[in-house]
């Protein structure tokens, strides 16, 4: 337990050692620690962001799916409508064609009927004239009585 110059030597060595540590050892290690802390912080932030992004992406995917489904439904609806329209149109056209045909047939029948009536009327007039000729052989001159016969024919109409 004797004090001597060792004490002074120790003071000097101590100060040198401390300054060495402060200058050459401490800064790089603390820098590495801080950098690692930053890295970890960045990593955690990135992970959080990725999580949020994933949620957003999932939401967007859902949205897109919904839209696609909606538009598919729209397409189907309009296609059905269009098909129905086409069918309707075809039906209408068919009905029109049928009606036209019926009309044409009717008018033709009418014409034929008219002609037949006319023929019949002509024949009846001829028969009447012939009958009247038989009866009035002498008195009736076809030429003189043509107007009379025409009137008769007219009345038979």
């Amino acid at each position: 337990m004797n004090l001597n110059a060792t004490l002074i030597a120790q003071v000097v060595v101590f100060l040198i050692f401390v300054l060495f540590t402060k200058k050459f050892v401490w800064p790089p290690i603390v820098k590495a620690l801080d950098e690692r802390a930053d890295k970890i912080k960045e990593g955690l932030t990135a992970a959080d962001k990725a999580k949020t992004d994933l949620v957003l992406a999932e939401k967007r995917v859902g949205e897109e799916l919904r839209k696609a489904r909606e538009s598919a439904a729209n397409v189907r609806g309009s296609a059905e409508k269009q098909a129905a329209g086409i069918v309707e149109e075809a039906r209408a056209e068919a009905a029109k064609i049928v009606a036209d045909a019926r009309k044409a047939a009717e008018s033709e029948a009418q014409t034929v009927l008219q002609r037949v009536k006319e023929d019949l009327r002509g024949q009846v007039a001829a028969l009447a004239v012939a009958g009247a000729e038989q009866i009035l052989r002498r008195e009736i001159d076809a030429k003189a009585h043509a107007e009379l016969l025409a009137n008769l024919k007219q009345e038979l109409n």
Partner: peptide, 17 residues
């Protein structure tokens, strides 16, 4: 002497350094 500044302990200084 209890205190003698002319003396130095080589061993302590050596191991300490």
């Amino acid at each position: 002497a209890i205190i003698d500044w002319s003396v130095i302990n080589y061993d302590s200084v050596f191991f300490s350094i």
